[in-house]
Amino acid sequence: MSYLRLDNLQCTYDRTVAVRNLNLDVAQGELLALLGPSGCGKSTTLRMVAGFVKPSAGRILFGERDVTHTPPHARDTGMVFQGYALFMHMSVAENVAFGLQMRKVPRSEQAARVKEALRLVQLEHLAERRPAALSGGQQQRVALARALVVQPTVFLLDEPMSNLDARLRMEVRLEIRALQQRLGLTTLLVTHDQEEALTTADRLAVMDHGRVRQIGTPQQVYEQPVDQFVANFIGRCNLVAGRLDGPGVFRAGAHTLPCAPLAATRSPVTEMALMVRPDRIRIAGAGAPGLPARVKLSTYLGGTTEWHCETDLGPITVAQPSTLAHDTALRGLAAGERVSLQWSPEHALALPADAAA
């Protein structure tokens, strides 16, 4: 059962449509990530849910309650902003208590709720410090506590980890997910970071130019993108232009390449691109069945090694665990060597430029 529902939601600034006829359902206790490039409409959508931006059309429902025209302070939402938005002249405890004061929560309740919120984010011992004396990760936890202390029915996260370094991002990401699941919060997360979305969300909604291109679980969106935009945005991929000449028959230049049969729900257009993820490609010796290629560069990335190859269809990247680089087929594979690229048909999808095409 959905708890947050966006019904034909639209937002127009002057002549620019920022969000176009958006329909979205978020289940009780679910974390749904809005993912997309800058300017795709994801932050505008979040701000409409929070009440900071007025929709041009459509409705926003929390359960059966229509909150489209309800002011922000009366929506029972908790929001964590990209820049934390902490008051530097206040202590940690005072920052966390601020939302309770705005909601006229009795003073007798405030201290206990602030203490509990700080306990949830493991900052009880820093209650009297000022934000300037905290690390970036600790400031983000204060922002989380301030959003949680009001006991929100809908939890809103606006790129909450973008100001943290890589190590802290991973730590805070795991903490946010654990808190969200433990408290059963219906959550909308805005991010442009695909790894953050894949590892945090129950479902993803990939947005572009104000509309949703695809909604699904992380695995569905990664393994079965509906079009080339989604494939390119979620994870890395190789795209080879060509034509679909029949079920499982993809022709590109002079080559017939293996691919999965086109799903019945996909567009029947023939001008498409073949998508193969770098980690689904195998490298074989020259002359073996597959797509002929020449190694241009190899890159060691710790647990993974990449081979950047040239083909007469364009560049193709192969990624394999570095342990395989010690196997006979890949050992000492150097720039300039001729190889053959192979993949299983089920790992190659023929995709239209746009799923709406």
Rank of each mutant, 00 (worst) to 15 (best):
F98G: 03
R294L: 10
A355S: 14
A329W: 05
M1S: 15
G63Q: 12
T317H: 04
V49A: 04
S91N: 09
I234E: 09
D354G: 04
M275A: 11
F250E: 10
S267L: 15
Q180R: 06
A286H: 13
E124C: 07
L333F: 02
D327F: 09
V269H: 13
G210N: 12
A18Y: 00
T12P: 06
A178C: 06
R338C: 13
V49L: 05
G285V: 05
V212K: 09
C259D: 13
T44R: 00
V17A: 14
R213Q: 15
P268F: 03
A147R: 03
L46V: 05
F229N: 12
L301Y: 09
E223Y: 03
V142A: 02
L324G: 08
V226F: 01
V149A: 06
A57H: 00
V142R: 02
G314E: 11
E109W: 00
L262V: 10
A288E: 13
E306C: 03
V149H: 06
P268L: 03
Q220C: 02
F87T: 01
L35G: 07
V142L: 02
K104F: 12
Q228R: 15
L144Q: 10
V142G: 03
V269R: 14
H209T: 01
L189H: 14
G41R: 05
Q101V: 06
S135D: 02
S322P: 12
T70F: 08
Y222Q: 10
H69E: 15
H73P: 08
R277K: 12
Y222G: 02
A252G: 05
G51L: 06
G29W: 02
S56K: 10
G210T: 10
R75E: 09
G248N: 10
Y300R: 12
L351C: 01
A197G: 07
S43Y: 01
R280S: 07
G242S: 11
T199C: 09
G137N: 08
E195F: 00
R65N: 14
Q28C: 08
L274D: 03
E346W: 06
A147D: 08
L134A: 00
M48Q: 08
L6K: 08
S322T: 15
V53F: 15
A127W: 01
L118S: 06
A50M: 03
V121A: 07
T323S: 15
L330F: 09
L120P: 11
G63N: 11
A145G: 12
V26L: 02
A93H: 07
P321H: 08
L31H: 03
L333D: 04
D76H: 12
L31Q: 07
A319R: 14
R15C: 04
V92I: 13
L257A: 06
V49H: 11
G332T: 11
R146K: 11
D25Q: 07
V249H: 13
A132N: 13
P292E: 11
D279K: 11
R75V: 02
I60N: 11
T70K: 10
A85P: 04
